[in-house]
Design a protein around this nucleic acid. Structure first.
Lengths: 148, 148
DNA sequence: GAATATACGACCTTTTTAGTCCGGAATTCG
DNA sequence: CGAATTCCGGACTAAAAAGGTCGTATATTC
């Protein structure tokens, strides 16, 4: 249905919160309580972000998580990819190594949809966690496409 | 996982095919056979496009479907919305009349995510069915955002 | 009237997502 | 040390969404 999963939503909430409190680590428990979300599910998401290298984990009492990169270099696309595996595929036949789409079927719309997929990926790459914390207050933004 | 549903994929295939053969009606059976997809599911999708007014249905022998609008005025966003109900919500709390997201939780990322949602909606609106039939051959397209 | 095609609701199956449980390992602190 | 705390990670269950089927009704052509 073209919606971000809870996992990604939780991941974004987490990294945003980490970006807000750069000086201290935040535990999964604190985050789950603050946002009233599932502790265990959030934990798994955090582990994925650790694996991706975006977040660093500290075990033991007073442990928790902290950003391992600068908030302005971490994009929403990075978070999505770390959690979902891939930013956006749009349709099945665009997954890598997928060549058995019903023969003549989707191959006629594959190319134009690939363009859309790339534009959407660009969109997710265009916003960083830093902007998630402090949204840009722009009077009005118009998106145009330049042919270069 | 942020992917278009089969329903939307079938819908796009259908309208694209109708745009290719403007002079004749195409039956659901023909479309299902041509693309090797489920006839009944495709039929439901076509009915949704009829309800939205984008496609016109002709019953009886030699009946079928035909576009009810110009291909260059029908956008991919139109098709998605007709079939899925809404273009893109990104997260639950952005659905209309949804104000009970876990209190403090998503409200901190709601605003910036709304920006992304709008940009994605723009992306889907930027491509018409006519372009689906004859993809624009652009050497390279760069998207920029102008503050006006 | 027979054949063909859409209309549409009820139903079933499969896949995905969301969420739980539990044993284990590292770290802090008394 | 040992207990409390916190991350780690796999196995598992439940709920929701997506994909797909079936049957019946209605309209149209020949």
């Amino acid at each position: 249905m073209l919606k971000l999963s809870k996992r990604v939503e939780y991941g974004l909430l987490a990294v945003q919160e980490m970006a807000r409190s750069r000086d201290t680590v935040v535990s999964a428990k604190d985050l789950a309580t603050k946002f009233s979300i599932s502790f265990t599910l959030l934990s798994k998401v955090l582990q994925q972000l650790v694996h991706a290298g975006y977040v660093r984990a500290y075990r033991g009492t007073r442990g928790g998580y902290a950003l391992n990169v600068e908030a302005h270099t971490l994009t929403v696309a990075n978070v999505i990819e770390a959690i979902e595996g891939r930013t956006a595929a749009i349709v099945d036949c665009q997954d890598v190594g997928e060549h058995d789409c019903s023969v003549s079927s989707c191959c006629t719309i594959r190319e134009p949809l690939a363009v859309l997929r790339d534009r959407i990926a660009d969109t997710f790459s265009s916003m960083t966690v830093a902007e998630l914390v402090q949204p840009q207050v722009l009077p009005h933004v118009q998106t145009v496409q330049l042919v270069i």
